[in-house]
Structures are given as structure tokens and as C-alpha cells.
Design a protein around this nucleic acid. Structure first.
Length: 826
RNA sequence: GCCGGAGUGGCGGAAUAGGCAGACGCGCUGGACUCAAAAUCCAGUCCGAUUCACUUCGGGUGUGGGUUCGAUUCCCUCCUCCGGCACCA
């Protein structure tokens, strides 16, 4: 009697066996090649979504495959468990963030287990536990000692909805990356991590990241925004101060007819001190600063500026030029002041036209074919004119010489500027890592001594949603003693950005219980770097650049020797439905739980891998999932109907078959093993690997009746089924284990070697050669593989159809390609 | 505006090194089974002609061009979509 496919029973059964046998736990073993397979850990928001299912299914195929290939695989998971949603839930529903988070983790853990992902569960990391975040504090203190963590008053991005500060990376088109509110500017004391100290290395490190998608590298490169140029000082005699400008075009400096400062520039107050309309100006400055980033970033916004009435001296020409304040100069970049060269910079051109400032061309096109467009700045490189002793030089030569002159004369120098800003990590919220700093009235700012770590998040707190961090309102937390003098002192109430947690969690997995250091260096040395990192591209700049920064810092601390944590990054595509990303607001969310319940984890896994390659977008369709369920059912029935073969005594055939149809099937089997292996190993094209498995299944089904008629055929069928089950192991692990057991095996598929193929058998022996006349397909013939070109040519020309078409004409040219085609030109 | 990426049947996608376009799956159509339906199984399914029929011919990978015996694949033009950056001096 054939047994029905009861996925629920089967899947639970094997999940239990895997857990009890602990076969996915990993230990360092220098004798075996290691493979660290990592997927981005989830934020425990409540439930797993399809994006997670996709991410973790991809990772699991790789992890299971590598294990079967003989690798010592580390495949861990954890929880990015600190963060705003927990606190918002507390405000809304009165649940404590800790309870909310831990409950969510419990539920989501059970969901991942229900999917049959082969994690090393003993290494689970949870960032909201003091065990973990104390090391955030430890790393922070190390950085603080070296001046890489510092506090400064600065303009920051403020999200009114989240009521906290955001890092530049977390502001997307002027809006909060999390809640989409418009971000405003606020001047606050903030803690920063000096990621800019690594700007150059973060950029040059890209050379080691050849296995990253190009567009992600491009995005990081743009974000770091390295630009080489020069700093030049313009003296302002009236206030006896210098204005330092940054320019990438020092060759145009003879055309600098004004200087513009950002409204946030530290010199503004002094510059307008004596201005007749000072009050009006101050008003405008205030208004401009307060304007949201979003508004200021709209390109169409008109350039507005005010003349301070003061003059600055162009150090090259010696001529005085007016000093302006304007809304189009960013304090964030360079020095917050620029020289205005209207003839050769479009923005300056617009500004100069509006305020009737002189426009002096100092660059002429290098060749007559290039002509400057009327009414626009000429921004190309060219030949210098109107530039005194530099006339006639090319822009490139001039930049070199002029920077040199500025340096010798002491009013400038070559310089490199980055767009990358230091990482503002202060968050005015409760559910985050407390920044381990104490303020003493007598001794000032004091780091918390290492032996007092962790500074724990106090459990008792009020979640009112009112302005200010809940931590500020907890006297037991705020009031403390100074580690220096023992006197009364106050704790820092800002907590860290949660991206700090995720910047080094992949180190923690190597020794999750470590109590002396963030991680055991020897263990990390064995496992790291991560051999394959898989996750959504939405973290292309944020998480992936912070992690690279932390890795380099930890290296400099001597805790690791690697430069890059993720030499190979697979950016997984989005899961969409009806043309857009699944989201609650669109109401197009499909719940994985329901799908697992209806079709089983194996079918869901197969489908989410089958419908498109990992890096591309994935369009959800329940019909597609049903198709994969049918595929599983076909395999199940095929195996069930042939279980008797495994009772027969005898050697499993080694691939020598007389019957032609058997040979074809045997060949198909070996080709399938080859294709599935290559697709997983070399391309990560899991979709085509699955389609190859479908083809093999179809072939076996078609050939089954014939095969069963002879001893030889039965052996072949048994061999094919055996390999098919093993090949299914990474994709549909529960099904594979169950069938493996049904065929009489007492081992686990997960611990069995990946099937090998015979390359000779995988090769086609007979090849179809295509015959073309003038590039058009006219006929085909079968020939043994590797047949020489000469013979192909003769054979092609002798074909009756070809002779007929040629009609006696002699081909002008004949192109023969072995194993491919014969192409005739007449 | 700048920088990337992508455009292939009704749909998701395949074609790995320039060589038979459309594998595999979905959907659809017809058939078998059934009193009937579902499920399952079998056959067909790029478009247009052509043939009683096995066929045969033409067109076809966003557009227009180029290189080549031969282009989904390489080069150029334009269009569309997606992503990133967006006064970066």
C-alpha cells in the first residue's frame, strides 16, 4: 500500500531528529576546510516574512550543500534585538520592550525551526542581552581611548516621529529610513564614531571585494565620495580672519570672483557683525538652517544669498572679491565655504547671474571642436587664459603647479575631501545599549571603567512617548558616582544606534559565550572571514559599510587579522506580489506560516528558490507554489512506487548500460548531478538547479515502466533515485531524509556525501550539428562528439536537403565549428 | 541632472565561452479517468502563413543601426522601467 505524503508529520519528525542529534553544531577542526555561511540576522519584529524565508532558504541550501561536500560549516543565526519598534510597542500596548522582544524571538525561532533551516542553534546571539551589548560598550570604550569615539555639538538629523537623532546613512531622500517622516535639523551634543579615519581604506578595500555586486560597490564608493583637490585661504582683512575654501578646480582660481559661505559656517556671526541689515540676515540664516534637509535637497530650489559687504582677497590675483552667505553651500562638505567661479561652475554661474557678479572666463577649450555653450558655465578641462603666469597650461598641469605655489607661499595645499561623515551613534531612546560614560561636575566626562561593564538597561522605566529618553527619568540609572573622585555624578542617557550591534555580531558567533573579550580571537581566526554573506541590498551602505569599518578597527585592536569581513556578498532580491514589495500598508503580505501549513516547508523552500535567481526580484504566486508542491508529490510517488527495488540484493550499477534508452537515462543522471553541483557551487543559480531536478524526475517517471522490466533497468532506477534523493537534500531536506530512510538507509542525508558524477558519462556522445546557409538554419545531422571539422563539412555538403538548396552553387565560404555547426555562405 | 542595472511567449524565468531562442514551472486548450466535479494522467501551447498529414516557409529576444558566416549575448543611438546619488565645490 502506497503511503500518502504527509509533510507535516515528516517535517516535524526530521526537525526533531536534527535537533536531538545536534548535527548542525560546528566545532573548529583544522583538518577540514571551513565554510562560514551567514545570512543577515533578523530584527525580531514579531513574525518571519517572505523576505526572511527567501534569505534563509538560500543560505540553507548553501550550508547543507557545503556540508555534503565535506566542509566544516558554520551556519549561525541570532537576533538584532534592540531597537525602536520594541519601545513603540511599549508605548502603544504597555508591554515591556524586553518581554515584547523575547516573546517575538521565541515565536520567530519556532518559525525558523519549522522551515528546517540547519542552524547551529547553540551559537544563537541575542543583542538585547547584557552578555552581548556589554561588548558594544567595551568596543566603544576602546574607541574612546583612541579618540575614535568622541562627543561634539553639531547639527544632526532629527526624526520627530522616532524622537531621536539619525545618522546620515539613515536619512533617505530627506526622510527617516525607518518611519519615512521628514527629517529636520537640530543642534545637539552627539557621540560620534570616527569612521572617516578609515575612509580611504574603506574605499581601497573594494579591491578585495571582487565577489560583491558591482552596483553595491558603486553605491559605497559614491557614499564615501572621495574627491581630490586643494584648500586655499582667502584673507578677510576686515575681521583679520581667513576663509578656507576647498576646490577640485584650483586651475580656475583666477576666475574666482566671489566667495560663498554656508549659513552654518562658524564665521558667519563675525562676518555679519557690522552689517546694516544684520537682524534681517540673522532671521534668514535661522530660517535657512531650520529648513528640513528634504527641502534643501530639492535641486530646483533657487539659490539665495546675501552679500556680507566684506571683501576677501583672492590670493592668486590679489584682488578683493565679495563674501556671500548662501543656501547652496553645504557646511557638511569640504570646509563649508567655496570660491565662486561663475565661468566654470554651473551653480556659481546661476548665482552670479542672479546677483550680477562678474563672470571671468579663465579656461578655454583644448580643441576647437569643443565649444562652450552660451548661457552656461564651461566645466570641462582646457587651457588656461587670463591667469597670469599660468596662461597656456593645461588644467591638469595648472592644478599641480598652482597647488604647489599655494603651498610654498603658505596660503593653501593639496587636499582630499570625503563625503563620508563620522557616524553619529547617539539615540535618545531606551531600548539600546547605554553609552558607558559618566559626567562628573568635578572631573568632567569619565568613561565607565571596564570592570563596571555592562552598564545595563534598567528594567523599570516609563514608556509615555513624551519628549526625551525614558532613561533620563530614572534617577537610579542617572545618578551614580564618579569613577575618578567618587563624588556624585550623572550617567549618559543616550543609547547607541543599533547598527553598532550588527557591526560585529558575525565575530560573536565564533565564540558566543566568551566572557573576557567580545570574541575569542583564535576561534574567529578559524572561522572568519564569512565565506558567503547573504542579505537584502537595502543594507548596501548602512550595515555593510559599518561592518567593514568595525572589522578594520577590530583588526587594528589586534583581535582579528582580516581586513574585510565579507569577501563574498550575495545581494538577494526583493519578494514582491502584484508588482510591488510585500508590505502591511499595501496589504499584499503573504504569511509564511499559512503556506507552511498548507503546502509544507519543503514546497515553500523549493518554490521561493525556483521562481527566480537569488539576486533578482521574486514575484510571489500561490499557483507557482502549488506547482512545486506537485513536483514534490511526483517525487514522493515515484519513490513510493519503487521502494521494492531497494529490497533487491545486488550491486548498484556503475553506469554501463547496453540498451540505448538506459544509456540516455544514465547520461541524464550524470548530467543532472553535474548541473546541480555547478549551479549551486559556481553561480548560486538555485532556480536552474531545481529545474534540472524536475527534468530528471520527469525522465525517470517516463522511463519507469521500461526500466522496471529488466534487472539492469531496476539497478539504474535505484541508482537514479538514490542520487535524486541526495540532490534534493539541500532544497527539500525533510523529504530527502524521509525517502532516504524509506529506501532502507539508517544514515542521514545531511551527513552523506554529495553524489559524484562521471564526467565521461555526463558528456554527450552524439551531438546534433546544425547546418546554416547564409546564417539561416537549414538542416541538422547527428554525429559523434569531437568529430573533426573536415568530416563535418563533407557530411553537411552531402545532405540531400543542402544539395537541393545549394542547387549546384559552390559555397563562397564554409565555417565549421566542432561540436556545433557548419555554416555555408553562398 | 549624474551613476548603475534591466528590458526574451499570456506570466515567472532558461539559453554558463558569439553557434538549434523560449529549458523548467505557472496559466491556457484538448483528451483520458469520473454519473459529475476535484485531484491525477496524457497531448498541445512564441507569432503568422502553409499542408489531408509527417511538413514546409517567413518573422521574432524594447527601438534603430554596426561588427560577424552567425548576435538574446559584443559596440553605438534612442525609448521604457527599476535602483542609487542628487547644489559634494
Amino acid at each position: 500500500m502506497k503511503e500518502a505524503y504527509n509533510f507535516e508529520e515528516i517535517e516535524k519528525k526530521w526537525q526533531k531528529i536534527w535537533a536531538e542529534s545536534r548535527i548542525f553544531e560546528a566545532a573548529e577542526d583544522p583538518a577540514k576546510p571551513k565554510f562560514y555561511c551567514l545570512e543577515m540576522y533578523p530584527y525580531p519584529s514579531g513574525r518571519i516574512h517572505m523576505g526572511h524565508v527567501r534569505n534563509y532558504s538560500i543560505g540553507d541550501v548553501i550550508a547543507r550543500f557545503k556540508r555534503m561536500r565535506g566542509f566544516n560549516v558554520l551556519h549561525p543565526i541570532g537576533w538584532d534585538a534592540l531597537g525602536l519598534p520594541a519601545e513603540n510597542a511599549a508605548i502603544k500596548h504597555g508591554t515591556h520592550p524586553q518581554k515584547w522582544t523575547l516573546d517575538n524571538i521565541d515565536y520567530m525561532r519556532s518559525q525558523l525551526k519549522r522551515l528546517g533551516i540547519s542552524y547551529s542553534w547553540s551559537r544563537e546571539v541575542n543583542t538585547c542581552l547584557p552578555d552581548y551589548y556589554r561588548w558594544n560598550q567595551w568596543i566603544f570604550l576602546k574607541m574612546f581611548e583612541q579618540g575614535l569615539a568622541y562627543r561634539r555639538l553639531s547639527w544632526v538629523n532629527w526624526c520627530p516621529q522616532c524622537r531621536t537623532v539619525l545618522a546620515n546613512e539613515q536619512v533617505v531622500a530627506g526622510r527617516c529610513w525607518r518611519c519615512d517622516s521628514e527629517v529636520s535639523q537640530k543642534k545637539m551634543e552627539q557621540w560620534f564614531l570616527k569612521i572617516t579615519a578609515y575612509a580611504d581604506e574603506l574605499l581601497s578595500g573594494h579591491e578585495q571585494l571582487s565577489q560583491w555586486p558591482g552596483h553595491v560597490l558603486e553605491m559605497q564608493k559614491n557614499w564615501i565620495g572621495k574627491s581630490e583637490g586643494a584648500l586655499v585661504n582667502f584673507k578677510v582683512p576686515a575681521i583679520k580672519k581667513d576663509i578656507e575654501v576647498f576646490t577640485t578646480r584650483i586651475d580656475t582660481i583666477y576666475g574666482a570672483t566671489f566667495v560663498v559661505l554656508s549659513v552654518e559656517h562658524p564665521l558667519t556671526a563675525e562676518l555679519i557683525a557690522g552689517h546694516p541689515e544684520k537682524e534681517k540676515l540673522l532671521d534668514w540664516i535661522k530660517k535657512t538652517i531650520a529648513e528640513s534637509r528634504a527641502k534643501r535637497e530639492i535641486k530646483e530650489e533657487e539659490k539665495v544669498g546675501y552679500d556680507t559687504g566684506l571683501k576677501a582677497i583672492n590670493p592668486f590675483t590679489g584682488q578683493p572679491v565679495p563674501v556671500f552667505l548662501a543656501n547652496y553651500v553645504l557646511m557638511d562638505y569640504g570646509t563649508g565655504a567655496v570660491m565662486g567661479v561663475p565661468a566654470h561652475d554651473q551653480r556659481d554661474y546661476e548665482f552670479a547671474t542672479k546677483y550680477s557678479l562678474p563672470i571671468t572666463p579663465v579656461i578655454k577649450p583644448a580643441s576647437p571642436e569643443i565649444q562652450p555653450l552660451p548661457g552656461q558655465a564651461f566645466e570641462e578641462y582646457g587651457i588656461l587664459i587670463n591667469s597670469g603666469e599660468f596662461n597656456g597650461l593645461s588644467s591638469e598641469e595648472a592644478m599641480e603647479k598652482m597647488a604647489g605655489l599655494a603651498e610654498t607661499k603658505g596660503f593653501g595645499r593639496k587636499s582630499v575631501t570625503y563625503r563620508l561623515r563620522d557616524w553619529g551613534i547617539s539615540r535618545q531612546r531606551y531600548w539600546g545599549t547605554p553609552i558607558p560614560v559618566i559626567y562628573c561636575e568635578k572631573c568632567g566626562l569619565q568613561p565607565v571603567p571596564y570592570d563596571q561593564l555592562p552598564v545595563e538597561i534598567p528594567f523599570k522605566a516609563e514608556f509615555t512617548g513624551e519628549e526625551g529618553s525614558p532613561l533620563e527619568k530614572i534617577p537610579e540609572f542617572v545618578n551614580t558616582t564618579c569613577p575618578q573622585c567618587g563624588g556624585p555624578a550623572r550617567r549618559e542617557t543616550d543609547t547607541m544606534d543599533t547598527f553598532v550591534d550588527s557591526s560585529w555580531y558575525f565575530f560573536r558567533y565564533c565564540s558566543p559565550g566568551e566572557t573576557r573579550l567580545p570574541f575569542k580571537p583564535e576561534k574567529a581566526a578559524y572561522w572568519l572571514p564569512v565565506d558567503l554573506y547573504i542579505g537584502g541590498v537595502e543594507h548596501a551602505i548602512l550595515h555593510l559599510i559599518y561592518s567593514r569599518f568595525f572589522t578594520k578597527y577590530l583588526r587594528d585592536l589586534g583581535l582579528t587579522r582580516i581586513d574585510e569581513p565579507f569577501p563574498h556578498y550575495l545581494a538577494q532580491g526583493m519578494v514582491t506580489k502584484d508588482g510591488s514589495a510585500m508590505s502591511k500598508s499595501r496589504g499584499n503580505v503573504v504569511d509564511p506560516d499559512e503556506m507552511v501549513k498548507t503546502y509544507g516547508a519543503d514546497a515553500l523552500r523549493i518554490f521561493i528558490l525556483f521562481a527566480s535567481p537569488p539576486e533578482k526580484e521574486f514575484a510571489w504566486s500561490e499557483e507557482g507554489l502549488e506547482g512545486c508542491y506537485r513536483f514534490i508529490l511526483r517525487i514522493w510517488n515515484l519513490a513510493e512506487e519503487n521502494l521494492d527495488l531497494f529490497q533487491e540484493k545486488g550491486v548498484i550499477a556503475a553506469g554501463q548500460f547496453d540498451e540505448a534508452s538506459f544509456q540516455r537515462l544514465s547520461k541524464k543522471l550524470h548530467q543532472t548531478i553535474k548541473k546541480v553541483t555547478d549551479d549551486i557551487e559556481q553561480r548560486f543559480h538555485l532556480n536552474t538547479a531545481i529545474s534540472a531536478l524536475m527534468e530528471l524526475t520527469n525522465s525517470l517517471k517516463k522511463g519507469r515502466d521500461l526500466l522496471r522490466q529488466s534487472r539492469e533497468g531496476r539497478e539504474l532506477l535505484a541508482e537514479a533515485l538514490t542520487d535524486l534523493i541526495l540532490l534534493l537534500g539541500p532544497f527539500a531536506p525533510h523529504l530527502a531524509e524521509e525517502l532516504w530512510q524509506k529506501t532502507g538507509r539508517t544514515t542521514l542525508v545531511a551527513q552523506t556525501s554529495w553524489p559524484s558524477y562521471n564526467p565521461e558519462l555526463a558528456k554527450e556522445e552524439m551531438i546534433t550539428i546544425v547546418v546554416q546557409i547564409n546564417g539561416k538554419l537549414r538542416d541538422k545531422f547527428e554525429v559523434e562528439a569531437e568529430t573533426e571539422e573536415e568530416i563535418l563539412k563533407e557530411k553537411a555538403l552531402s545532405l540531400p536537403r543542402i544539395q537541393e538548396l545549394l542547387g549546384g552553387r559552390e559555397p563562397k565560404k564554409i565555417v565549421c565549428v566542432k561540436n556545433k555547426l557548419v555554416s555555408l555562405v553562398v
